[in-house]
Structure formats: structure tokens, C-alpha cells
């Protein structure tokens, strides 16, 4: 439907329109948009501390975006990244706290525990879709809330003794890096970003360079044709959800072992999983796109934290901008239509 130029133009135009509407909102509510956006930029990349914080913020976004995008490529909509991320978070911290092992074993084991928990959480909607044709959107939404309540229960009654947070994971299971921290004036930047970039490469390898990935994409394009060509559609659906959940779980492990180093009671969702939907959409569901979109969202989110102090603009402006961007990307039909009109007009 869209050619290659449009595939790149549509996200770019959407971002620009989102920022313009954000500026209009600022003007209407009595703020100076130039001040607002320059404060945002300064808060995101202004010095090495802010840059470190932004990179730390980008890390879970890459994983969440990859998770949504992976399922998308098989024609599945995984809204459950938020829940899968939470169970990945708690599982990685749990394994981090429960064992006493050398770092070379302990850290990978904790990270993989996060991936496994996320995969398990996504397996449920996958198998329900494959066996009973239950729509994965509804099931993943419901699984989000079950995850939230279950994780809070685990934090309070199982892992800790009626506390709001768990203990910190020992150094052997931590992603924290004193080197990266000193490099960025003691920001919370950790090793996770390298894992996230590796995750993006693995994402690309699986989907573009393996037979399994070919099958997954094929099912995403046309289930019936894939079935006719002898592919097992149901198995691919489950497989896709499991990998997607594993990516989400890894995102949770980054938060649990890197950013925070512990798990805590969530009164509401972290939002990273939902932002992952926006990241995947904006990134066109390809690895490089997801990384770029995650970088943009990381900058927006991190920069937003400084906006109120520097310019008085509430941080929520960024939520509005993100929502508008999603609307425009989702309505790409109309943007493509307008672009075509422009082309015709030029001729």
C-alpha cells in the first residue's frame, strides 16, 4: 500500500505534527513553546548526566518496542507488554535475591529468568489464540492487570516481609556499572543498553535471516496462504507471542537489575509497556526503526522531567505529544492520501 519513501515520511511527519500540536497546547495554556522544548532538549541531552539518564530510559523502551513489534510482524497485537515486563522484573529480582552464585552465572541466570517469566506470561494469550481463537488483545489487557496484582502480592508477602520494596539484588546479579556511572556524572546508566542493542540485532536476525522468522512473517501477511503452504499457523502464533513476551520480560529485567536494583509495589502501571506500542508503531515494526523510535521517546520522557523546573510546562505535555503521534501514525492512510494529493498537485 505504501512505498518506501512514505514508510519513512509518515513517521517523520507524525512526529512533527505531534510536536506542533504540543506547541499549540503550550501556547493555549499560557506557556512559551520555545522555552518548553529547549528545556526538554536540555533535560534529555544537555550534559553527560542527562544523557546517561536518557540512555537508561531508552533501554526498556527498546525491549518493549521490540516485543510489540515482534508480535505485530506475525499479525498479533500484544498489548500485554506491560504485564510481561512486570513479571519479568519480579522474576529477575527474585532469582537475583534467591541465589548466591558467581557473577558469570548469576547475572545471566537472573536476566534469563526475566525473559522466561515474560515468555510464560505471553504464552497464555498465545495458546488461547491458537487453540480457542480468543482475541489476544483482550486477553493481554486482562493479563496486565493480573500481573500487576500478582506482582504486588509477591513483593509484599512472598519476597519481602510485608514491605513495599524488596531488598536490593546483590552485586553478582546487578547490571549496574560504576564505570558508566562515573562516565556520566553518576547517572543511573547501566549495561542494559548494550543488551537492548543486541536484542535489536537478534530481533532482526530471527525475523529476516531464519526460516522460523520467514514463517512468522508469512503468517503475519496471510494466515490462509501460510497454512496452505504447509506452515503450522497455530504453532507460529504461540511462538511469536512467546518471543515477544521474552523481549518484554528482558525489558523488565533491565529495570529490576539495572535501573532500580529491586522490585516494588506498583500502584499503577509503569507505562513502559504501553509506550512500547507507540515505539513499535513509530518504528514501523523493524529493528532499526524501533531503536530510533525508542531513542526519540527516551529523549521526550527524560527531557520532560526537567521541563517543569526550567520552563514551568508540566511533564504531561509529552504524554499529549506521544498520543498525537500515535494518532497520526495510526491514521497513516490519511497522511498517505494527502501526500499523494500534493504529488498530483505538483505535476
Amino acid at each position: 500500500m505504501f512505498n518506501r519513501v512514505q514508510k519513512i515520511l509518515i513517521p517523520v511527519i507524525s512526529v512533527i505534527l505531534g510536536l506542533i500540536i504540543g506547541a499549540i497546547v503550550m501556547i493555549i495554556s499560557g506557556f512559551n513553546p520555545l522555552e518548553g522544548y529547549s528545556a526538554l532538549l536540555k533535560g534529555a541531552v544537555g550534559d553527560s548526566f542527562y544523557l546517561g539518564e536518557t540512555i537508561r530510559q531508552i533501554t526498556p523502551y527498546i525491549f518493549a518496542g521490540l516485543a510489540v513489534a515482534f508480535a505485530f510482524r506475525t499479525g498479533l497485537f500484544n498489548i500485554g507488554v506491560e504485564g510481561q515486563l512486570l513479571v519479568g522484573w519480579i522474576a529477575s529480582v527474585w532469582v537475583g535475591l534467591a541465589f548466591d552464585l558467581p557473577k558469570v552465572i548469576h547475572l545471566p541466570m537472573s536476566i534469563l529468568a526475566g525473559a522466561a517469566a515474560g515468555a510464560l506470561w505471553a504464552f497464555v494469550p498465545g495458546i488461547l489464540k491458537a487453540r480457542f481463537r480468543v482475541h489476544e488483545v483482550i486477553v493481554t489487557i486482562m493479563m496486565n492487570y493480573i500481573a500487576l496484582h500478582l506482582v504486588n502480592h509477591l513483593v509484599r508477602y512472598v519476597i519481602s516481609d510485608q514491605q513495599n520494596t524488596t531488598e536490593r539484588v546483590p552485586e553478582t546479579a546487578s547490571l549496574k556499572s560504576p564505570f558508566l556511572e562515573t562516565l556520566t556524572e553518576f547517572s543511573t546508566m547501566h549495561f542494559g543498553i548494550f543488551l537492548a542493542l543486541a536484542g535489536a540485532i537478534i530481533f532482526w536476525l530471527i525475523l529476516e535471516k531464519t526460516t522460523a522468522g520467514f514463517e512468522l512473517r508469512s503468517v503475519g501477511f496471510n494466515q490462509h496462504a501460510s497454512e496452505y503452504a504447509g506452515m503450522n499457523v497455530n504453532r507460529n502464533i504461540v511462538f511469536s507471542m512467546v518471543i515477544s513476551g521474552a523481549f518484554a520480560g528482558l525489558g523488565g529485567a533491565m529495570e529490576g537489575l539495572g535501573t532500580f536494583g529491586y522490585a516494588f509495589i506498583h500502584s499503577a502501571f509503569s507505562g513502559v509497556g504501553f509506550d512500547g506500542i507507540a515505539v513499535a508503531l513509530l518504528g514501523g515494526n523493524v529493528a532499526i526503526g524501533v531503536v530510533l523510535a525508542a531513542a526519540l521517546f527516551g529523549i521526550l520522557k527524560q527531557g520532560a522531567l526537567i521541563m517543569p523546573i526550567e520552563s514551568g510546562v508540566p511533564t504531561e505535555l509529552v504524554e499529549i505529544v506521544i498520543a498525537i503521534i500515535i494518532f497520526f501514525v495510526a491514521s497513516s492512510y490519511i497522511i498517505a492520501y494527502v501526500l499523494q494529493r500534493f504529488k498530483k498537485g505538483a505535476k
Binding site: I79, F274, I277, A278, L281, E319, I320, I322, A323, I324, I326, F327, V329, A330, S331
Partner: peptide, 8 residues
């Protein structure tokens, strides 16, 4: 997607 955006 639009619903998600509405929530945001």
C-alpha cells in the same frame, strides 16, 4: 491503536 492513543 487509536484506543490506546485515547487513553494516553
Amino acid at each position: 491503536v487509536s484506543g490506546v492513543a485515547i487513553n494516553f
